[in-house]
Design a protein around this nucleic acid. Structure first.
Lengths: 215, 215
DNA sequence: ATAAAAATTGAATGATTATTCAATACAAAA
DNA sequence: TTTTGTATTGAATAATCATTCAATTTTTAT
């Protein structure tokens, strides 16, 4: 009725931006709704209300609920990827400092908060039944692992560590992160960001015995 | 119509057993249905069909779908608990052998198969919104952790390992298991039971450097 | 300012599903 | 066998929800 006035721009380009604004509003609302109510209780009506558009529009805009969910997972995945991609690419920084930054990122409040984690796990839980969810998650994992192994390899060389392969260290770290994220959901009082970070740093300490930065 | 004849016994006690047979049939069918179709797609109708009882009966027997789901999670939790409880209690066995058995159990095909894991994760994903799910999962975790720390403490004493506390080792192991279970869902080709077991044994090797049984 | 096009609404539709319950089948007791 | 109580059925109910679409509002072009 008048709502639309608020954000509208006048040029054609602005109008195209406008399209993405609604697009993004709906994706944000989807993620928030899943975080607040769970995937099972996330309806188009709830999402539309939160995004402040009509129910019909939400469906029209994304063609289907399924498509909206997939787009939201993709967004979440991209957001996470951007956060670590940046760190892996900082070649001027010492590898050990770089891996510590990766750990800090993985347990930052932007990434490892209960809302985001509950959304991740909601999608994980459907991975076996929705090939499109699986594809998005797998693609993410693959690149992360690849970069992680490269980084661990550098550290192995620097520290002259030969007992544990880059793949082993990378897989262990990765599974620890997934496991700890899950536990943050269960009991965020115990599994604080500090607790989790210290735990994985201790793991690195067990591998790179002489490296004090992991202590 | 005649179905019921098949399993019926004649004495009163047998009749009570009969009650549990249907009870268990429904719980099994629930777990199988979640594994096959996902929690979101699990309806009373599907479960009833798989258990070979009428839809009305399934609901009547458990009072509500919610109650059926909770009972199924409880069953899954008890089953898992029995499998590790036994091992923790084998005090005559060397602690290191005992922890290796724990690892073997956690990645046995009875425990760590894709069906069971997908059911676990389905429930995990709702933990934030269903206090009863959370309670069941937390109670399980608490006892497991407690026993694990006790066991690690023994091993620390035997090996004279002082750098890593029982709590740290236990938490690291536990999070690795959760993380690896998740990854088995993603890619069971890569994350075979052997792969997972070797990975956690390698972790123990990093802690207990001189102990060859972890190699 | 007006017309045409595009965006957005909201109410209607049809499908799905948990739950209820009267009717039936069955078992136990007499 | 007959009666009584319990177990089980299956069809009806009511609620929820994704999806559709004709009508309306807003934007753009003339």
């Amino acid at each position: 009725m008048m709502k639309a006035l608020v954000n509208k721009k006048t040029t054609k380009q602005a109008s195209e931006t406008e399209i993405s604004v609604n697009h993004q509003k709906l994706i944000d609302a989807t993620i928030e709704t899943i975080a607040k109510r769970g995937l099972a209780d996330t309806t188009i009506a709830h999402v539309a209300k939160r995004a402040k558009v009509s129910q019909g529009y939400a469906n029209f805009r994304f063609k289907s609920k399924d498509n909206l969910l997939i787009s939201s997972l993709q967004y979440l995945s991209d957001e996470y990827k951007k956060s670590w991609q940046k760190i892996f690419e900082e070649n001027n920084i010492d590898p050990i400092d770089r891996i510590i930054r990766i750990v800090q990122n993985d347990f930052s409040s932007k990434i490892a908060n209960r809302n985001k984690i509950s959304v991740w796990i909601a999608f994980y839980s459907e991975v076996k039944f929705r090939p499109s969810y699986l594809t998005i998650c797998q693609r993410q994992d693959e690149i992360y692992s690849q970069q992680m192994e490269k980084l661990v390899n550098e550290i192995n060389n620097i520290t002259n560590q030969k007992e544990f392969t880059p793949k082993e260290v990378s897989e262990t770290y990765h599974s620890m992160v997934d496991g700890l994220w899950q536990r943050i959901l269960f009991d965020p009082k115990i599994y604080t960001h500090e607790f989790c970070k210290n735990l994985v740093l201790k793991y690195f300490k067990s591998i790179y015995v002489n490296e004090d930065r992991f202590a």
